[in-house]
Every structure is written in structure tokens, then in C-alpha cells.
């Protein structure tokens, strides 16, 4: 099973209290943010705090840093300051094309060499937030072996589309679908955008239902309260686990009998169904024991 990234939780990089406690909520990935959550006047202090946090705090899970875009005056400085602390993952916002990924990849390679980190140990992901980025999504996803995930950043994307965000999310349907296709073609994960109305739990659940159906691997979250909701949603249900176990048992039995046709409760089982059952059980195993009941 690949690394779980059901929840990727943003934490403002300039807030010491939040940085200190970021690890306690069980998010699969913590994203220490140097970009949108940080005012321009605070960029340098956020960078320093994030460096200290990664160096001093054992978060016990994957730690990512969202840097400022490399076309701003802050992006490269973020990387210079933070890479020596060896974050697990760099998240690039507003990605417009594969060249940006390649430039950062090169920069990370130099840092890894300089600080004697294993080559390729710092991963990357990119957020697509423009129509151009979406058109080049596959190229972005496959621009570097460091790339582990694509994400969609809805607010900027919708502004670019000249529409507004709705409860049903129809305005994002095409982009979400296209992004999942690109990520899957490149063999990496796909992460959905944040849901910012943290008190609308019903709306949040509806959106989770949608993105799970569409094939997303996880969701960016802005509030720790959303983490367990996401995890509950992505956890296979007891019914799904039970079904997967039966499918595999039927498959095993057919193999032993050297039978070409496999069926369960009168329904034909073919190899994609077996693969899905295996994925369900692997997922169940990976998510078990994370947090309380």
C-alpha cells in the first residue's frame, strides 16, 4: 500500500502554537504553510519558524511545506531555508507547467547532495489552480520522479473560470475529473481542494462523498476538526471489507479448483473486481489502528 494521504492538513507557518500542536490530530500529512496563510510581511519569520518546527518537533507523520511560487520573491528563499531541515514533501502552489517542477527538482537534488540526504528522499507535489496548469496536468505529474501527488486549488481555479463556487460543485466537475485522470495516468495520487466552511459538516460530507466516488485519494483540510471526518469517510465500511474478503475467498477457491469462471452470490467476478477487493483490504489494513474507535 502506498503512503496514505487521506488528509493533508494546512498549518499556518507563522503560528508557533499551531505548529507545536499540528501533529496531534492524526492528519496523514501536515502541510506547514509559507504561502497563502502568511502575510507578505511575515514571510521571513514563517520560513524560520517552519525550519525550526521541522528540525525540533517529532510530528510522527509526513511533513510537507507549501512554499511560495518560485516566480514570487519568496519561493526560492523558502526552499533555501527549509530544505536543510529535510521536509518529507514540498508542495508547489499555482503550478503552470512541468518546467517549474523540473527547476525545483534540480534545486532539491543539489540540497540533498549538499546535506547528504539520500537522493530523491524529498518528495514533491503540485497544486493545479489555472486552466493552463490543468491542460498540462499529466506533464506536471510526470515531470519528476519526486512527484507523488497532484492537488486542485479550487478558489483560484474558479476565479480563472469566471464563475463562483457552489454547494454542489458542478463548476469543478470537469477539472476534478481531468485531474484524477492525469494523476492516474502518471501513477500518482490526487488530492482534492479545501472545504473552507468548517461549520458546515453536512456540506463537507457531501463533498467527501463526491470526491471519493471520483477517485480522489484524499483532501486538503484547513481545520483539525475535519481530519477525523475525512478519515471516517475514506475508511472502508465493514460491509465493504466483508465483501472484499468474500471476493478474495471465492477467487482463491477458483484458483485451487483451477476453475476459469469465478462467481460470488451468482455474480461473475473478474480480475478488476479482485484487484479492487485487494485494494480495499490493503486500505483497511493501512487505516486500522490510526486513532481511537
Amino acid at each position: 500500500m502506498e503512503k496514505l494521504r487521506r488528509s493533508m492538513m494546512f498549518v499556518p507557518g507563522n503560528n508557533p502554537g499551531m505548529l507545536l500542536n499540528a501533529g496531534i490530530y492524526g492528519a496523514d500529512t501536515i502541510i506547514l504553510d509559507c504561502e497563502d496563510a502568511v502575510a507578505i510581511t511575515e514571510k521571513d519569520s514563517a520560513r524560520n519558524l517552519v525550519f525550526q518546527a521541522i528540525s525540533e518537533i517529532n510530528y510522527g507523520t509526513e511533513v510537507a511545506v507549501r512554499i511560495n511560487h518560485i516566480s514570487t520573491p519568496f519561493g526560492w528563499d523558502d526552499l533555501k531555508r527549509i530544505l536543510p531541515a529535510k521536509p518529507d514533501l514540498i508542495r508547489l502552489p499555482m503550478c503552470q507547467g512541468p518546467d517549474e517542477i523540473r527547476q525545483i527538482d534540480e534545486f532539491i537534488s543539489e540540497a540533498e547532495h549538499k546535506h547528504k540526504f539520500p537522493a530523491g528522499s524529498i518528495k514533491m507535489m503540485a497544486a493545479v489552480e489555472t486552466p493552463k496548469g490543468l491542460r498540462l496536468a499529466y506533464e506536471i505529474a510526470s515531470a519528476s520522479p519526486r512527484m507523488v501527488a497532484l492537488a486542485i486549488g479550487a478558489e483560484d481555479f474558479i476565479a480563472n473560470l469566471k464563475t463562483t463556487r457552489s454547494k454542489l460543485g458542478r463548476e469543478l466537475l470537469a477539472a476534478r475529473g481531468q485531474l484524477v485522470l492525469a494523476a492516474r495516468e502518471a501513477g500518482i495520487q490526487c488530492i482534492d481542494t479545501v472545504f473552507s466552511d468548517i461549520n458546515d459538516e453536512e456540506g463537507f460530507k457531501k463533498e467527501l462523498e463526491l470526491i471519493k466516488e471520483m477517485g480522489f485519494d484524499g483532501k486538503s483540510v484547513v481545520n483539525p476538526r475535519q481530519v477525523s471526518v475525512v478519515h471516517d469517510f475514506f475508511a472502508p465500511t465493514a460491509k465493504e471489507i466483508d465483501h472484499a474478503q468474500r471476493v478474495l475467498a471465492a477467487y482463491q477457491e477458483a484458483l485451487e479448483k483451477k476453475s476459469g469462471v469465478i462467481s460470488l452470490n451468482g455474480k461473475m467476478i473478474d480480475l478488476p473486481i479482485v484487484a479492487r477487493a485487494e485494494r480495499t483490504l490493503a486500505y483497511a489494513k493501512a487505516t486500522a489502528g490510526k486513532g481511537g474507535k
Binding site: N199, P224, S228, G292, K293
Partner: peptide
């Protein structure tokens, strides 16, 4: 409370009571 830290502590406490 809506404080995520307090909610986390509360959830743990409920789980301890349960287990």
C-alpha cells in the same frame, strides 16, 4: 467547544470510558 484540541481530548476521554 469548537476548539479542535479540546475536542480531541474529549474524544480520547470518551474512548477511554468506552474501552
Amino acid at each position: 467547544t469548537k476548539d479542535p484540541k479540546e475536542l480531541l481530548i474529549a474524544k480520547y476521554a470518551a474512548d477511554v470510558m468506552d474501552y
